[in-house]
Write a protein that binds this DNA or RNA. Structure first.
Length: 472
RNA sequence: GGUCCCAUCGUCUAGAGGUUAGGACUCAAGAUUUUCAUUCUUGCAACAGGGGUUCGAUUCCCCUUGGGAUCACCA
C-alpha cells in the first residue's frame, strides 16, 4: 500500500521551522515509495486565523519544492481540504460517535469546567453530564440548549500503542482527559477533526510533534469506537532554540521567511533542517530534496530534541552559495547591490570575489560596503609587519604606482596585477610592499574581499586613481 | 504536582556488548594565497552520576540527577 501523509498546518501566521521540518518528513515518507503528500488546512479555531497565512504556507512549500498531490487549491479525491469547509462532516460523525458510546453531550459552560479544575487536587474534569441519559440529552439538544460533545472514556487499564520513533508507549486511561470534540460553536477541535480527516483522507502515516504523544491514546479510542484502523504514528522530537527553550516566534528567526530574509537559501535551510534529528547513516551532509527522497528512512529519526544551530546553517548556506552557478549567484547579488550601490562599478568582478567569501546573501552588503563609501581609516593601517610595509613605504609605493596606472589601458584584474607587480620589481620592493598599501588606500579596511588588483578592477580606473591620490 | 518521553564532544550526530568512541559545525595551529576567504592538513573537545547483568558495558536493566512534553470549547 502506498503511503499517504498529510501536512496539516493551522493558518496562524508564519511558517515555523519546526513545522517545515515536520512537513518535510511527511513529504519524504510519502515520496519515498511513490505515495501521496496531502495538504490540509486546519482552521477550526476562528480566533487564531490570520489573513494571508495560507498563502505563506503555499509559497513556502513551493519554494522548497515540496509539491503536494492533493490540497485546497488543486483538489483531490478526498476534499474539501480546508477544515472549515467540512463542518457538516464533523458534526455528523460527532453525533454518530455519541450513538456509538465514544462521546456524550455536555451542557456545562467553559467556566463551570474550569472551576472544577482550579481545584488544587489537580484532578481531571469530572463531567456531571455523563450521567444524563442519552434520550434526555438529545431532548435538551433538540430544545436548542448550548452543548458541546465530549469524548467519553470509560476504559480502565493501560493504553498501548506503537510509534515509529519512540517504540511502544503505555499510558493509563485514567490519565486521559475527556476533552471537547465538538465545540459549542459547531466547530470540531483538533482532537476530533484530525482523526476524522486522517481516516477519511486515508492517511497512513501521521507525522507530528511529540507533544501529541500523550493524547494519542485518545485518538486511538476514537478510531476504535468508529471501528477504524489507526494510522502509523511518527512523533518527532522538538526543534529547540537552546537547551530549555523551544524555537519560537518570540525569540526571532524561527520562521522560514525570516531566514530567507536574512540571506539564507531555501535549499540550504531545507537541507539543514532535514538533518536536525535525522541522519542517513552515512557521512553525507549535503542533500538535494531529490536525494533525500531516495534515502530518507523514518526509522533513523532521533528521539531527543535538537537545538537549532545557526552557526552550522551559516556554514551549510556558504556551501550552497559556493556551489551556485556564477550567473545565479550574480543575480542574487544584484538584488543586494541595488540596495546600496549607486556607484558604477564592475559588478561581475565584484560577484566573482564575493561568491567564495559570503555565507549568506546578506553578507554582501556588509562586505562590499566600502565600495560605495570609503570608510574613515587610520594611517596606522598602512603598517603591516608581515607585508614589511609602514607609512613611509606605503606613501612611496603609491606615488610610484599612480603614474603607471594612469597610463594603463587594459583595466582587468590580471593586467592590474601585472602592472603592480612590475612596480615592485622595478623598484626592488616586495610584492606586498606595493600591493598592501594599494589595497588599504582603496578600501580603508584591514581585510577585504579580494586583493588590491581585484578591488581596483571592480572600482574602475577613475575611482581607483581618486582613492589613491586621496591617500596621502 | 500526576503521567509520558529524552540523555555520546559547546552544537548536530555515528555507534545497536569487545572501537585508539567516528564524522560535521565552531574554535586553535599550519600549508597555499597580493590581505581576507576558499581549499588542504593537524589539533582541542563527549559517553550525566550510582548500582546491577556480563568474562567484558557508551551500548541491556534499575535508581538518582538533569531536561522536555502534557494535563484548553489551541492546534
Amino acid at each position: 500500500m502506498n503511503a499517504r501523509t498529510r501536512f496539516a498546518p493551522s493558518p496562524t501566521g508564519y511558517m515555523h521551522i519546526g513545522n517545515l521540518r515536520t512537513a518535510l518528513y511527511e513529504y519524504l515518507i510519502a515520496k519515498r515509495d511513490g505515495g501521496q503528500f496531502v495538504l490540509r488546512i486546519e482552521d477550526t479555531d476562528q480566533k487564531r486565523y490570520v489573513e494571508g497565512a495560507v498563502d505563506i504556507i503555499y509559497n513556502t512549500l513551493k519554494t522548497v519544492g515540496m509539491n503536494w498531490d492533493e490540497g485546497p487549491d488543486i483538489g483531490g479525491e478526498y476534499g474539501p481540504y480546508v477544515q472549515s469547509e467540512r463542518l457538516k462532516l464533523y458534526q455528523e460523525y460527532a453525533h454518530k460517535l455519541v450513538e456509538l458510546g465514544g462521546a456524550h453531550y455536555c451542557f456545562c459552560s467553559k467556566d463551570e469546567a474550569d472551576e472544577q479544575k482550579d481545584d488544587e487536587s489537580n484532578t481531571k474534569f469530572k463531567d456531571p453530564c455523563k450521567n444524563i441519559s442519552l434520550d434526555e440529552a438529545k431532548r435538551r439538544v433538540a430544545n436548542g440548549e448550548a452543548f458541546v460533545i465530549r469524548q467519553t472514556i470509560n476504559k480502565k487499564g493501560k493504553s498501548l500503542f506503537n510509534d515509529v520513533v519512540y517504540g511502544d508507549i503505555e499510558i493509563d486511561y485514567d490519565d486521559l482527559d475527556e476533552g471537547v470534540l465538538l465545540k459549542s460553536d459547531g466547530f470540531p477541535t483538533y482532537n476530533f477533526a484530525n482523526v476524522v480527516d486522517d481516516h477519511l483522507m486515508k492517511i497512513t502515516h501521521v507525522v507530528r510533534g511529540n507533544e501529541y504523544i500523550s493524547s494519542t491514546p485518545k485518538y486511538n479510542l476514537i478510531y476504535e469506537a468508529f471501528g477504524w484502523e489507526p494510522p502509523i504514528y511518527v512523533h518527532v522530537a522538538q526543534v529547540m532554540k537552546d537547551a530549555q527553550h523551544k524555537l519560537s516566534k518570540r525569540n526571532g528567526d524561527a520562521s522560514f521567511q525570516d531566514l530567507v530574509a536574512k540571506g539564507y537559501l531555501p535549499e540550504a535551510i531545507l537541507n539543514y533542517i532535514a538533518l536536525l534529528g535525522w541522519n542517513p547513516g552515512t557521512e553525507q551532509e549535503i542533500f538535494s530534496l531529490k536525494e533525500l527522497e531516495e534515502c530518507f528512512d523514518a526509522n533513523r529519526l532521533n528521539k531527543s530534541p535538537a537545538i537549532f544551530d545557526i552557526q552550522k546553517l551559516r556554514w551549510m548556506n556558504g556551501c550552497y552559495i559556493r556551489a551556485l552557478d556564477f550567473d545565479e549567484f550574480h543575480k542574487l547579488a544584484e538584488v543586494q547591490y541595488d540596495k546600496f550601490l549607486t556607484r558604477n562599478v564592475n559588478r561581475v568582478e565584484l560577484s566573482k570575489v564575493l561568491q567564495p567569501r559570503v555565507e549568506t546573501i546578506n553578507d554582501i552588503v556588509e562586505m562590499a560596503g566600502f565600495i560605495e563609501t570609503l570608510p574613515e581609516y587610520s594611517i596606522e593601517l598602512f603598517v603591516n609587519k608581515k607585508m614589511k610595509t609602514d607609512v613611509e613605504i606605503a606613501k612611496k609605493s603609491i606615488e610610484l604606482v599612480l603614474p603607471k596606472l594612469e597610463t594603463l589601458d587594459v583595466w582587468t584584474n590580471e593586467s592590474l596585477f601585472e602592472c603592480l607587480k612590475g612596480v615592485a620589481i622595478e623598484n626592488e620592493l616586495k610584492n606586498g610592499q606595493v600591493l598592501y598599501p594599494v589595497r588599504i588606500a582603496l578600501t580603508g579596511l584591514e581585510t577585504t574581499p579580494g586583493g588590491a588588483s581585484e578591488i581596483a578592477s571592480i572600482l574602475g580606473k577613475e575611482e581607483t586613481l581618486r582613492r589613491l591620490k586621496k591617500a596621502f
